[in-house]
């Protein structure tokens, strides 16, 4: 029974298309979007154990790239997707090369990513090309060639496609030699190095891949909400969202970010709908978060029964 649950998940993801409720589609879309963000983070940080606090930097690069391309240079926003992926990968490569060459790990790496995102936020706030704190408003022209969706189902479909790609990458990581190397680095850097795995290169590649995926999510965001400003793009809250979704769901698993996004959105949205007094809903959300951390040490994906061998165990056996 439990073996078929991915099929169930796919069916559930497609159900909103049958609904005329834009609200329902929108909920599904925002959930899938969170899952995409979480998966972007998960690729480097879950599989590679590179705890990043600044993944918003890739998200923001994607969002600003597409916004600047079309408002300043009149380039079709669809081209923003590949462009953002390239820029995101480049940013990941640069950040990774610098940080890993310096031997930064754990919280040191986490903090350098945080500072990196902050640098971009301040730059976006001060430079002319990003229009500083004004932000960039993308003119409203809903049409498919223009990458704007009058019906949320269009946007949702695209989010799902990108999520599927991101999950494909995650699945590939579980099977490929590159993925195995990455997991080996996560579990024990010294042992991995002794086996001849190039640490800096492996981690940098993972971060570049992760940056590319996260940047495409930024493009989607810009095209859905048509407004980007420094805080929306590079704010710490976005980084925290990615990390929470992946870690609560189960870092280093293919389905973890999806589960995390579903559970966190269910809690958040339900709390918001039931409680009007300002502050109570997020407080409840925080408390439930603490409960999940307490009772599900490996994230929600860790709940799955019967337990498959985790990547961790596979490495140990290898």
């Amino acid at each position: 029974m439990l073996r078929y649950w991915p099929i169930l998940a796919v069916v559930a993801a497609l159900l909103p298309f049958a609904s005329s409720s834009q609200f329902l589609v929108n909920l599904a879309m925002l959930t899938a979007f969170s899952a995409l963000l979480g998966q972007g983070w998960n690729i480097a940080c879950g599989f590679g154990g590179l705890t990043s606090f600044g993944h918003a930097v890739f998200f923001g690069i994607g969002a600003y790239a597409v916004a600047i391309m079309q408002t300043r240079f009149g380039i079709n926003p669809w081209l923003g997707l590949p462009a953002a992926a390239i820029l995101g990968a480049a940013a990941g490569a640069v950040l990774g090369a610098a940080a890993f060459r310096a031997g930064l790990r754990g919280s040191y790496f986490a903090l350098v990513t945080l500072a990196f995102a902050e640098v971009f936020r301040i730059l976006a706030n001060s430079l002319d090309i990003t229009k500083g704190g004004l932000g960039i408003l993308i003119p409203l022209h809903p049409s498919l060639p223009n990458f704007q969706f009058a019906d949320r189902r269009g946007a949702y479909a695209l989010v799902l496609v990108l999520l599927a790609v991101a999950m494909g990458i995650a699945a590939w990581l579980r099977r490929s030699r590159f993925g195995a190397r990455l997991v080996a680095v996560r579990e024990n850097e010294d042992a991995a190095a002794a086996l001849g795995i190039p640490l800096v290169r492996t981690k940098t590649q993972a971060l570049a891949l992760s940056g590319a995926v996260t940047a495409t999510a930024g493009v989607l965001y810009a095209q859905m909400f048509l407004y980007v400003d420094p805080n929306i793009a590079f704010g710490a809250e976005r980084s925290v969202e990615m990390l929470l979704v992946a870690m609560i769901g189960g870092a280093g698993t293919v389905w973890g970010p999806v589960l995390g996004a579903i559970v966190l959105h269910l809690i958040q949205d339900t709390a918001r709908m039931l409680i009007d007094t300002p502050g109570f809903a997020p407080m409840l959300y925080g408390a439930i978060l603490l409960a999940i951390i307490a009772f599900l040490p490996n994230g929600i994906a860790g709940l799955r029964l019967p337990r498959r061998r985790s990547a961790r165990e596979e490495v140990r056996r290898a």
């Binding site: 925290v240 929470l244 870690m247 609560i248 997020p282 407080m283 959300y285 925080g286 408390a287 978060l289 603490l290 951390i293």
Partner: peptide, 9 residues
């Protein structure tokens, strides 16, 4: 994660 949750609360 716990410190993050505490901060939200």
């Amino acid at each position: 994660l716990a410190t993050l949750g505490v901060a939200i609360v």
